[in-house]
């Protein structure tokens, strides 16, 4: 038996637009082990959200997803019926969305959302069922856990009446009700101040330790990535360009994109007049280069890089890099 919670092999997703399919994510391979936090960082628009949504079948109808393997704790997610998948998503798999507003029904109060979720989670186990009976008290306690002390009031409000961060925390509370085996968390703390953010991260840590819950954790915050993630995958223009243990990625980034990203991140820690950007134009999804996607911006680029897309290369120590500088494996 492997200790993997989630195994993704060769995932590709595109969108049908104006008669053709535009590929936005390709050749994604990753594994989230039991109780592990796998960080997903990288370029804005590189496909982090689409990757998460593809795994959870949450994309709109015009999306086309293919994969060789999508395994969740021994269940083949690819062959699951729509109905079984929905059951799974409500109880054992969960997503904290990047856009909290879109996750709520605007015409229903917060209490309605909590009640729904408790009822759903109630089917999981007798303990969950017992808690579902007392869902009001349990909700107030849960809201307090995510840093909302006046939960009883908040439950009477509509989603648009909460601040950005309060809505984000309410969404996290909804996910915590399930105690799922895997959480895809898409920038779950962007709207939160540092103090509350740390509090939420500790709740995640608790789920991870207590229930062996695995996380696919999308973030732009390098401090959080370094603090929370066991391993990290870096995405650029639809592909994972580097994956490996957090410490090694931060201390010795291999891929030129990862190097540029970490240099930009560090710039804010030192006092500077002007922040460092990665030079060059951002990738244009309608017109991608034939070889390495980072080639037009890469200071190490050579003829070889333009010939064909480089393959993932195992560089040892659990690390893989998609770049010709590190050989062809």
């Amino acid at each position: 038996m492997s200790d993997a919670t989630l195994t993704v092999r060769n995932l590709a997703t595109g969108f049908k637009m104006g008669g053709r399919v535009m590929n936005v994510v390709r050749e994604v391979n990753l594994e989230v082990r039991k109780g592990e936090v796998l960080g997903l960082i990288g370029e804005s628009g590189s496909g982090k959200t689409v990757t998460g949504m593809s795994i959870l079948r949450l994309l709109p109808d015009n999306a086309v997803t293919e994969a060789d393997t999508l395994d969740f704790l021994g269940t083949d997610l690819l062959s699951l019926s729509a109905e079984r998948f929905r059951e799974m998503r409500g109880t054992r798999l969960a997503m904290v969305f990047q856009d909290p507003v879109g996750a709520f029904n605007p015409s229903k109060k917060i209490s309605w959302h909590l009640k729904q979720v408790f009822e759903r989670a109630g089917t999981k186990s007798p303990e969950h069922a017992a808690r579902a009976k007392n869902w009001r008290q349990a909700s107030i306690k849960l809201l307090a856990d995510v840093g909302i002390p006046h939960g009883a009031n908040v439950m009477r409000q509509y989603p648009h009446q909460l601040s950005g961060g309060m809505l984000q925390r309410t969404l996290i509370a909804l996910v915590l009700v399930f105690e799922p085996d895997l959480i895809v968390a898409d920038e779950p703390t962007t709207n939160l101040d540092n103090i509350v953010e740390r509090q939420i991260l500790r709740l995640f840590r608790d789920l991870q330790k207590r229930l062996d819950c695995g996380f696919l954790y999308v973030t732009h915050d390098m401090t959080i990535a370094a603090m929370l993630c066991d391993r990290i995958a870096v995405m650029y223009a639809g592909s994972i360009v580097e994956i490996g243990p957090t410490k090694q990625i931060f201390s010795d980034p291999k891929h030129p994109y990862t190097q540029g990203l970490l240099a930009s991140a560090l710039a804010l820690d030192t006092k500077t007049e002007r922040l460092q950007e990665i030079p060059g134009e951002l990738p244009n999804p309608g017109n991608l280069p034939p070889g390495c996607l980072f080639e037009p911006r890469c200071k190490f680029a050579k003829a070889e890089c333009r010939a064909k897309p480089p393959a993932m290369t195992d560089v040892g120590g659990g690390r893989n890099v998609r770049c010709v500088l590190y050989g062809h494996g």
Binding site: I41, G42, G164, N191, H220, M222, G260, Q276, E277
Partner: peptide, 15 residues
């Protein structure tokens, strides 16, 4: 919060 959802390189560009 105009740069909260941007990667650090694009964030640098916007700032």
């Amino acid at each position: 919060e105009p740069v909260s959802k941007l990667d650090v390189s694009v964030r640098a560009q916007i700032l």
